[in-house]
Design a protein around this nucleic acid. Structure first.
Lengths: 157, 157
DNA sequence: TTGTAACAAATGTTGTTACATATATAAATA
DNA sequence: TATTTATATATGTAACAACATTTGTTACAA
């Protein structure tokens, strides 16, 4: 179904670029809704899930809160409290850094790894069941999205 | 810049589709942050802005709250309170429907139209300054996103 | 060395969102 | 007609997020 039909738009988009902007946002929200539904039974928010994935991707190298924020898809200012929740659940450990007592080392625990593995097996069906699109097309999509995020040099946002 | 660099990922994505999922979400958040920054001086949230655009797209035909929800990019359950805020600002009118006293007619006011026009002129620079990508590529991007949102018939999310 | 600035994280506050529930009305059915 | 069910919106509540501020620590310059 095309975007115009899905959002029941009457006026056409004023440009392909405007449509692409809306299309990216709409698709993202669509993915969010699906993921959210899948994560709900695990009592884990998407942001918590993403932090867990970031830590898992570190191969046991601890990272700081600021580094987590850097790597997050949505640069939330609440990483500190997100980590809190993961600590309470036992999925994450947070220790004061030895070299810098302001910063802290955050690392995923074995329990966190197991939990994530369990979730991933459930979520992988999501990947299988969406996207009527070939490997070549996925490659193109990824490249176009990367290009789409370029800003003009003089722009100041 | 590629996605992997932007989110400083160490492990590669396990599939092009997984990368595409993250890429769409990341790009959407990127767009959100830019739009948010541009709308901030107007004291208007993105959701309020979107509702205003939906109403403006109606060519003076009133629509109900449910129809607004239908057309929204993020199907929030708070359309009622969003309309509240726009009514307070004088950008929108809400009347009880004559044919159905449960429902209501929501319509944009002249003030709302003027306000939107003013904002749009500011936001159009956003469109001009992002996306290093041709018209043909935008067409491809839009089609790929539409295809990406397809679900397998048997899937139940 | 002392004072100031910069930094990393945590926290307070305010507003928003999601979800469940309530209210009011309309439609359907017995 | 009376009762049940469905519909459209509104609202209460708890969790969450954004933003600003605070706390504790480090760096650096006078």
């Amino acid at each position: 179904m095309t975007l115009e039909n899905e959002i029941k738009q009457i006026k056409p988009f004023s440009s392909k670029k405007e449509k692409a902007i809306v299309n990216v946002i709409f698709t993202s929200n669509w993915l969010f809704a699906i993921q959210n539904k899948l994560l709900k039974p695990f009592d884990l928010s998407i942001q918590q899930y993403n932090v867990l994935r970031i830590l898992n991707g570190q191969n046991d190298n601890p990272i700081t809160i600021n580094q987590i924020i850097d790597r997050m898809l949505d640069k939330t200012s609440n990483a500190s409290r997100l980590v809190d929740k993961l600590v309470i659940k036992g999925f994450v450990r947070r220790d004061q850094k030895e070299t810098n007592r302001r910063a802290c080392d955050v690392v995923i625990t074995e329990l966190g790894k197991k939990f994530l593995l369990n979730i991933k097996s459930k979520l992988s069906t999501l990947e299988d069941e969406i996207g009527d699109i070939s490997e070549e097309e996925l490659e193109v999509l990824n490249n176009l999205l990367d290009a789409f995020r370029k800003k003009a040099n003089y722009s100041n946002f």
